[in-house]
Design a protein around this nucleic acid. Structure first.
Length: 289
DNA sequence: AAGCGGAGCAACCGCGTAAGT
DNA sequence: AACTTACGCGGTTGCTCCGCT
């Protein structure tokens, strides 16, 4: 079956996002919520494909994102979850509020891999490097892959991941057995037993798309006029939804002074904290409607 | 000061699949 | 049931920054 490209690539912009584009995307999503990514660029007045918009929003502009390096605890969680889930970054990310799959993937590839190797642990199998012979290692990888592809196992693993972070990994499954030694080694370094539980209500619920918003334009042909009316600071925000710190952060991003904007700047200049604070909040879906 | 190389990270690409018709 | 469409995911790329020579 032929698959059409996600968007007409001709004339679409690629590469780093500008402050102006961020502004447009934020304005649009704050007002309309996340829905129909394919339509977002057109309605928001962006020369990007929907995919690019979604990525920019989920990986960078979302208000509930934490920025900055992963804490030791988060890092430990990533290692733990990776041992159980493999390279399923989005699943791993779902256990780390405010972190994106992309961020975790990058952190894994640039930091954690090295760290584990330094500790003598194979990052793929989570077994000590010295004890693994090549053929065995290969089989281990295959076994892990195999077991992870089964839906039944996945549910078990998911449940396990949610609980084992605070306790020990059950050893009633072969793959768990194979990880035991790894975990022992890691535990020496990270002491996961002391980390607090993550409560379900601490898991952020990213804004849902049920919000074909009531405030959305009556039809798309009015979208350009509609967008003119979007001025972020004028939005009625639920009381206490975003603290002043956070608002100033986004205002920073949206301000006209940020033409040279590289959102990294915001992070580098101490705006991280407000973003991080947001991660503790559960987004109210009503807000988006 | 300039050049080089590695590290880090944002963004892109292509595939799998759920949802819709 | 067959097909289409859009979304989400994971792998990869390429740009920027920074430290070293």
């Amino acid at each position: 079956m032929g698959r059409q490209p996600c968007c007409d690539k001709v004339g679409l912009k690629k590469g780093p996002w500008t402050a102006e584009e961020d502004k447009k995307l934020i304005n649009f999503i704050v007002t309309n919520g996340q829905c129909c990514w394919r339509a977002v660029p057109k309605l928001a007045g962006l020369l990007r494909c929907g995919k690019s918009c979604r990525l920019r929003w989920t990986n960078y502009l979302r208000p509930d994102l934490k920025r900055g390096l992963l804490s030791e605890y988060e890092e430990k969680m990533v290692i733990d979850l990776h041992a159980q889930l493999g390279n399923r970054w989005s699943k791993i990310a779902s256990h780390l509020p405010g972190r994106t799959d992309n961020e975790i993937k990058n952190h894994w590839n640039t930091h954690i891999k090295k760290k584990l190797r330094k500790m003598g642990i194979d990052p793929q199998t989570h077994k000590p490097l010295s004890t693994i012979e090549q053929p065995q290692q290969h089989q281990l990888e295959q076994n892990q892959q195999c077991s992870l592809t089964e839906a039944e196992e996945e549910d078990k693993i998911k449940d396990s991941a949610e609980t084992s972070l605070q306790s020990t990994i059950t050893d009633d499954k072969e793959e768990d057995k194979s990880m035991t030694c790894t975990m022992e080694i890691i535990n020496n370094e990270f002491c996961i037993d002391e980390v607090p539980l993550i409560e379900p209500n601490e898991i952020l619920v990213p804004t849902s798309s049920s919000s074909t918003s009531s405030s959305s334009p009556s039809n798309s042909s009015d979208s350009s006029k509609f967008l003119e009316d979007l001025k972020f600071p004028d939005f009625d925000l639920p009381c206490g939804f975003w603290d002043e710190d956070f608002m100033s952060n986004w205002e920073f991003l949206l301000s006209d002074d940020s033409t040279q904007h590289d959102t990294k700047l915001a992070v580098d200049h101490g705006h991280t904290s407000s973003l991080s604070q947001c991660s503790g909040m559960v987004l109210d879906q009503d807000f988006w409607t």
